[in-house]
């Protein structure tokens, strides 16, 4: 069994009787095995544990932005409702499906590494990347739409659509100029949250390229699954963030549109 770390440490600690010699059990040590772990299970456990601690800090990081959204949404509800309704639901929904598909491919990749199917693993990692890039492509289109409508916070932001929606064929109640200014806050949070999510995906796609290269060399098809598994945890975490971003940013005011 090539996943075995035979540990002779207990023997070495014993005091030896005169004339006695230490009999080392044969090591079946693979490069990925670290000597400070007693067993393969312990190493895997420690790796998953560390990865989860990192992901929990990520939850706190995104959580700060989700909290800001929650608070300002309650303070400036009319602005948030109208601004939210300007987002592109079909593109958001398609992106959700694309991201779920990407996550599904990633999950199949972990399975392929477990059962040591090299070609299938590489294929699944490539598909994970392809769907990840497709997601970013749709995102770029959405950002461009915001640019055209002057919905990007800052000097070129325009409240015209919100104070006089009828002139722009937008079926919403007009906002006072003061409240309309607060739509900037929504769009700021929209760009901050989806942008930070997209940054995580770009980093993930970079790591995926590296993993594909290594998987192609056969590094993950001889029982060494940890890098694939831990990257999978990261990728699924990024999916989960989007599963919350999509309804909160795009959907929850749709029933108010007239």
């Amino acid at each position: 069994m090539d996943n075995l770390i035979a540990s002779p440490h207990a023997l070495e600690d014993q005091e030896l009787m005169p004339g006695e010699t230490v009999v080392h059990e044969p090591h079946t040590l693979l490069p990925q095995h670290r000597h400070h772990f007693e067993t393969e299970e312990q190493q895997r456990e420690a790796g998953s544990f560390g990865m989860w601690l990192f992901l929990l800090t990520e939850i706190m990081f995104f959580g700060g932005m989700f909290f800001a959204y929650l608070l300002y949404r309650n303070w400036y509800y009319p602005a948030f409702a109208v601004a939210s309704n300007q987002l592109n639901v079909p593109e958001g929904a398609i992106n959700t499906a694309i991201l779920i598909t990407s996550g599904f491919c990633m999950a199949l990749g972990v399975w392929a590494a477990e059962v040591r199917k090299k070609k299938f693993l590489v294929l699944m990692l490539v598909l994970t990347t392809v769907f990840g890039v497709a997601f970013l492509g749709v995102k770029v289109d959405e950002y461009h739409e915001k640019y055209e409508h002057h919905h990007i916070p800052g000097a070129s932001f325009s409240i015209a659509e919100f104070v006089n929606p009828a002139a722009y064929h937008i079926d919403e109640r007009p906002l006072s100029p003061d409240m309309a200014q607060h739509t900037q806050l929504f769009f700021f949070l929209y760009f901050a949250m989806t942008g930070m999510h997209a940054l995580h995906m770009i980093i993930g796609i970079g790591i995926l390229g590296w993993l594909i290269w290594r998987a192609n060399r056969g590094e993950f098809s001889t029982g060494y699954v940890a890098p694939i598994e831990n990257f999978g945890l990261y990728w699924h975490f990024v999916d989960i963030v989007w599963l919350f971003l999509f309804p909160l940013l795009y959907l929850i005011n749709r029933h108010l549109a007239h």
Partner: peptide, 19 residues
């Protein structure tokens, strides 16, 4: 309802995709 559905989906991902 939107948050309940999102939470359900997140739990499913955590339990199964993330093992």
């Amino acid at each position: 309802i939107a948050l309940l559905i999102a939470s359900f989906k997140a739990v499913v991902v955590i339990l199964f995709f993330m093992h």
